[in-house]
Amino acid sequence: MKKRFINFYVKYTIKIPILFFAVILFGVITIVSLYLLTKTSVIISSDCVINNCSIIVDGRIESHTGFIYIYSDRNEQIYSVEVYETSYENNKTIFLVKGNHEFIFDMDKKEIKVDIPIREITILERVFLKGGKINE
């Protein structure tokens, strides 16, 4: 019984690589599928100016999620803000934000940055093409 088990074990783990290839195939397919199915945003980080309830950034940028993220120090606090209208003037983008965002007035005098999700990519693209980086 013991010898039969040993022979069986050696056969299927060492001599015949079916199980081994099956594991590799299963692992690779699962990981790649999950990488393809999970989507994440590509972010553009930019300096911005806050004027009343509008946030102005240089260039023509559009948030694909309808949200932008404002901060003065990314590692301290990031504020998620919903955009209800985006307009463009003189090569500048103006985001009009929804709701009561008093923090914006607190941040008024500081150097403020904004993260704008511009498009969606799969994790596979993010890992293999961007090295995991979130920024464009």
């Binding site: 692992g27 699962t30 990981i31 999950l34 990488y35 199915l37 999970t38 989507k39 994440t40 945003s41 993220y69 990314r74 990031i78 998620s80 993260d115 994790i123």
Partner: peptide, 17 residues
């Protein structure tokens, strides 16, 4: 940064796999 819980959970699953 983005409190993106659904991506976090999916990536956690990839991590475990």
């Amino acid at each position: 940064y983005y409190k993106n819980i659904s991506v976090f959970l999916n990536v956690s699953l990839i991590f475990i796999v």
